[in-house]
Design a protein around this nucleic acid. Sequence first.
DNA 1: AAGTCAATTCACAAAACTGTGAAGAGTGTG
DNA 2: CACACTCTTCACAGTTTTGTGAATTGACTT
Lengths: 170, 170
Amino acid sequence: MSSEDQERARSRFVEQFAMVLNDAGMQRMPARVFAYVLASDAETHTASELADGLQVSAAAISGAVRPLIDMGILVRDRVPGDRSDHYRIYSDDVWSTIIGRQESMFRHIDVLLTNGLRALTPGAGRRRVGETREFYRFLNSQVDTLALRWRAHQAALTTSPEPARAASSE
Amino acid sequence: MSSEDQERARSRFVEQFAMVLNDAGMQRMPARVFAYVLASDAETHTASELADGLQVSAAAISGAVRPLIDMGILVRDRVPGDRSDHYRIYSDDVWSTIIGRQESMFRHIDVLLTNGLRALTPGAGRRRVGETREFYRFLNSQVDTLALRWRAHQAALTTSPEPARAASSE
DNA sequence: AAGTCAATTCACAAAACTGTGAAGAGTGTG
DNA sequence: CACACTCTTCACAGTTTTGTGAATTGACTT
């Protein structure tokens, strides 16, 4: 397989995975940037590398990178003697980071549902809203322990490598 | 508090919660319909009730209701002697239903990531994609048991009612 | 079988979003 | 201190999405 083919394959994967993230609620450009950084071998990327690799303008990169930084997924590094920003994935354990950032969303939802309960009069609707709040609280508690369980799961994997499943082109 | 005030409060809540669902990836109109049905006291709703309550045309309701039915959240009932459709929440335990519908998404993601792994050459990017697949598989396994745990949690609550927390306007 | 009412489909208008090019701001270099 | 280079901001154009009104389809009633 030629090197160009390999890059094409990588790019196709990046676009597909970005689409998945997009469907899951992430904006298109942030999703593309994230997928690109995730699937690239380089540890850091300049804005122009990203613009080049994703075939968009520098302006689009600038806009896409901000939310990713806000989310704590990317960090911006500055290298002395180089005017360009260098972006890299914040933690080697990206997914733990992402799990951890859900807190404020749950807080917001809880406030909203609690206010709803205060405003609604007794009845079936109010009962369902109460159940909804209970569900989100339950979900929150589950997510709290998810990062822990994920790290434990990873540790277990590295100790005893995974048994082959599906495509084992390892 | 007047009855109109109460309805206004309910409507405000419906719109806010629909926004939350919207942010979580649900389309605007399906989210509004779902929030409306959830928070209303009536057990069933005709299309025109929904159109009236949400201030949109019948056409918009028609479009919004289909995905909800596909998702298995709403069902359409037909009452003899009445030409209109009656929509209601499929299960008294909505959230279990919603959790259960995630399967096909995970299957799709797994295929995509597996193909990605096949196409990528060894390196840091491929390693991260492998970790991503492992993460989604982990998440899938967690979601599988989530509905079970949620029902257990509910059962525990009804046995020993929840200790007051935040706004306990019960 | 004809009539009546409700749901759906379709073409279209309005609104929101996305990414661009150009201009401007900030920062480090010679 | 002026230059060089990069990032950012902004107004805009193209595209997509969203909801409407009108016409069609479908179903129950008499």
